[in-house]
Simulated assay, not measured.
Amino acid sequence: GFITGSLLQPQALSAFSTPAMGCNLFILDSNGNPLPHDSAGIGELALDPTLFGSSTTLLNADHHEVYFSGMPEWNAKVLRRHGDEFERTADGYYRAHGRADDTMNLGGIKGQFHRD
């Protein structure tokens, strides 16, 4: 889990209120750069690569290529690709909008799928 609701914060329907403890989220703008943390916007979700419990290998793909290739840097660290499109509202809530790419993770094996 990288994003959650908290009983310590007001909640909104169909939205999350905060990143999970120890997780730093980034929403990338249309140029692939992280939006300021206090601004509203929509784009691909990226994660701080030091996220506890994140994978270090993949069974059928290059781990670096899948998660880090082409991603921007933040504080001298290459951000980790998540692949979902997320929105941060003007009120500071987060809403998921589905996949930003065409990759699915089934049983720990990443694979491509095609939308028809």
Score class of each variant (00 low, 15 high):
1 G>A: 12
1 G>H: 11
3 I>N: 00
4 T>H: 04
5 G>Y: 02
7 L>F: 07
9 Q>P: 02
9 Q>L: 14
10 P>K: 07
11 Q>R: 15
12 A>H: 00
13 L>V: 08
24 N>K: 14
25 L>A: 06
27 I>L: 04
32 G>Y: 10
32 G>S: 07
33 N>Q: 15
34 P>M: 12
37 H>W: 11
39 S>Q: 15
41 G>I: 05
43 G>W: 00
44 E>P: 05
48 D>F: 10
48 D>R: 06
52 F>A: 14
53 G>M: 10
54 S>L: 11
58 L>G: 04
58 L>P: 01
60 N>R: 10
61 A>R: 02
61 A>K: 05
62 D>T: 12
67 Y>S: 02
67 Y>E: 03
69 S>M: 04
69 S>E: 11
70 G>N: 05
73 E>R: 14
75 N>G: 12
75 N>F: 11
76 A>N: 15
76 A>D: 09
78 V>W: 03
80 R>A: 05
81 R>D: 04
81 R>I: 05
83 G>P: 02
86 F>P: 00
88 R>W: 03
88 R>N: 02
88 R>T: 01
90 A>P: 01
91 D>E: 14
93 Y>T: 03
93 Y>F: 15
94 Y>H: 00
97 H>K: 09
99 R>N: 12
99 R>Q: 13
100 A>N: 08
101 D>F: 06
102 D>I: 11
105 N>A: 15
106 L>D: 10
106 L>E: 06
106 L>I: 15
107 G>Y: 07
108 G>S: 10
108 G>H: 08
109 I>D: 06
110 K>L: 15
112 Q>C: 12
114 H>V: 15
116 D>N: 13
